[in-house]
Design a protein around this nucleic acid. Structure first.
Lengths: 185, 185
DNA sequence: GATAAAATGGGACACCCGTACCACTTCACC
DNA sequence: GGTGAAGTGGTACGGGTGTCCCATTTTATC
């Protein structure tokens, strides 16, 4: 026995993350079905066998891609909120730049209803989002108002991404919800 | 020319709806990927070629299945609301009987973000739901309060179906939203 | 430098898919 | 009752998939 631990070499770890990033990109671009072993390998400029070497199955690959997508999306929206503050929150419904990225996330979110592994990540997503809203509103995480605002924001965002209707109404409704939720006290 | 219009015979029409129902069932049970020509044909006790005869492509089959799922779901929830009234609305978040059916609907809803044909049906779904809420609240369809309540209800329902957490908190939050939305006037 | 584990990559296997083909039967209408 | 279209169903084709196998190279430790 000379090299007891797998995935210990730097190049190896780099390859793994390359594959994972490729999977996330493909998921964002073409959705669920586009994440195949061959497509991921080609995207990462690696041989096909690399995918099965670093990920025991396609399900695992998808799960890790989902997890990574959730984390990055949470951090980016967190920085967005700290930069724009609460009053500019409705403006978040304009970010159709990475629309397909959001689509991929929601695809996996719904798919989590049939896969316990993904389900855990889905919960992480929901909890992370409500926490972000709570922080933006300067409320404790458990405050029903934060959770309430998240529910409307979530639906509006999903609708925007899926149905692609003009965002004006959505923004107006979100400001309405904000006024109706916070200042009346 | 003797029989100019296709699909005119009674047996033929029956077969078509049988296939469509089979597709809807499969979608509910196994999700998106489970709706294959072969599976649908077997489920309907019909030969494989029947699927390509009545539906020009798998996409069309999925689109029609989605449309049918939306319509039936809208009508069933409509009758549910008229029977239970507004006050019992939070109880709607207990119907985990056909959880997988809801899952299938949401799967296709998200997929609509990548398919213009499905997108139209997705809009029909959103509009139908908000209209139902508006009727339950005895408000005009365009009242922001109806739309607002729908957004929270939608997220809570999706969360319930996907994440399978206890429904108590969701129901409590919905009643909270209802009180906060209607009686204060 | 020897050695065993880790890493690499080319290829193959078995499977399932959507769809097309085509001979056949049944039907509606003259 | 003849005729052409509608409907039926068995079969085959081409392609893409996940996963596995195995020979080879590279690495870390002795």
């Amino acid at each position: 026995m000379k090299n007891p631990n797998p995935a210990t070499q730097a190049r190896s770890r780099r390859r793994r993350t390359t594959l994972l990033n490729a999977a996330v990109d493909l998921l964002a671009e073409g959705g669920f079905a586009a994440v195949t072993h061959r497509a991921v390998a080609q995207r990462a400029h690696l041989p096909l066998a690399a995918t099965t070497y670093y990920f025991t199955s396609r399900d695992q690959l998808l799960a890790e891609a989902f997890a990574q997508l959730v984390e990055t999306e949470l951090t980016t929206t967190a920085t967005w909120i700290t930069r724009h503050g609460l009053t500019g929150l409705p403006e978040i419904l304009t970010t159709d730049a990475d629309r397909t990225r959001q689509l991929g996330l929601w695809e996996l979110y719904v798919h989590a209803g049939r896969d316990p592994v993904l389900q855990q990540i889905a919960r992480r997503w929901t909890d992370g989002c409500t926490r972000l809203i709570a922080q933006a509103l300067d409320l404790p995480d458990t405050d029903p108002r934060a959770r309430l605002l998240y529910t409307t924001l979530s639906t509006l965002w999903l609708e925007l991404v899926v149905e692609q209707r003009p965002a004006e109404h959505a923004r107006a409704l979100l400001t309405h919800a904000l006024e109706n939720l916070l200042p009346p006290r």
